[in-house]
């Protein structure tokens, strides 16, 4: 469960987030849609405690973002699309072990968890290869495993489809569906309308740091055609009104 309450974030003279509030339930995927610089990545960085909000607060699985940042980090997994966030000179296994140990897992538990994830994402035979020598698709699988090594109940995906080919992006979205079925709360940001429409249960459209619209995509599908929905989303993303 994620509860975001009036979060604002300012960088010098730029207001990156302006009183952002919404909630994400267990087993729900919320898509953050917005153009470049709208504040999507900033919001995810705030939720992962990398940035401190100027105003407002959030609750991640019951832990206060400002009061318990260490507990919050233990409860979130974050995955980036363009960057796999892995160390190229370490093997896939060493990468996973490193992040698991930093998350406070015991050596025995680390071994079991790495074996389990290597099996689940089919990289057992490559686990002792240095990440730099792996294919992009394989790196992506290891990166996914890295993000859930500590079994978080909240997942944040920062533009997971950015810079990936269809096959690699599909791997990530399949994984997102799996997380949903496991009851995890998920926020994913993207500037691709199609991916947001296809994979999220609820959509938050953000423009210049402000939430301009929050809606359930299935309800719109009942009222409008796909073409009309695209037109509405385009207007909203660009800061316009909800006109068909």
């Amino acid at each position: 469960m994620i509860k975001i309450k009036n979060i604002s974030k300012r960088f010098a003279k730029t207001l990156a987030l302006d009183k952002v509030s919404f909630e994400v339930g267990d087993g729900e995927i919320v898509g953050l849609l917005g153009e470049n610089g709208a504040g999507k990545s900033t919001l995810l960085r705030v939720l992962s405690t990398m940035l401190i909000p100027c105003e407002g607060n959030a609750e991640i699985n019951g832990f206060d973002l400002l009061k318990n940042p260490d507990e919050v980090r233990k409860n979130i997994g974050i995955l980036f699309g363009s960057e796999v966030g892995l160390y190229e000179r370490l093997t896939a296994r060493e990468n996973l072990e490193y992040f698991a140990r930093l998350n406070g897992m015991s050596p025995k538990k680390v071994r079991e968890r790495v074996d389990e994830l290597a099996e689940r994402f089919s990289f057992s035979q490559y686990q002792n290869k240095q990440v730099g020598a792996l294919s992009k698709g394989m790196k992506q699988k290891v990166a996914i495993a890295r993000s859930i090594i500590h079994d978080p109940c909240v997942m944040l995906f920062d533009e997971p489809d950015s810079g990936l080919d269809f096959k690699a992006a599909k791997t990530i979205f399949d994984f997102m569906e799996t997380c949903k079925s496991e009851g995890k709360s998920i926020i994913f940001s993207s500037h691709s309308m199609e991916n947001i429409k296809n994979y999220s249960d609820r959509m938050v459209v953000i423009h210049k740091g402000r939430i301009v619209k929050t809606f359930v995509i299935e309800e719109y599908r009942k009222k409008y055609s796909e073409r009309e929905i695209n037109s509405i989303l385009f207007n909203l993303v660009c800061g316009g009104e909800e006109d068909v």
């Binding site: 260490d70 980090r73 980036f80 960057e83 796999v84 966030g85 930093l102 998350n103 500590h150």
Partner: peptide, 12 residues
Amino acid sequence: RGTLESLLSTGA
């Protein structure tokens, strides 16, 4: 290399 964010999001 984009690994700093992964590192900052851990318990360290």
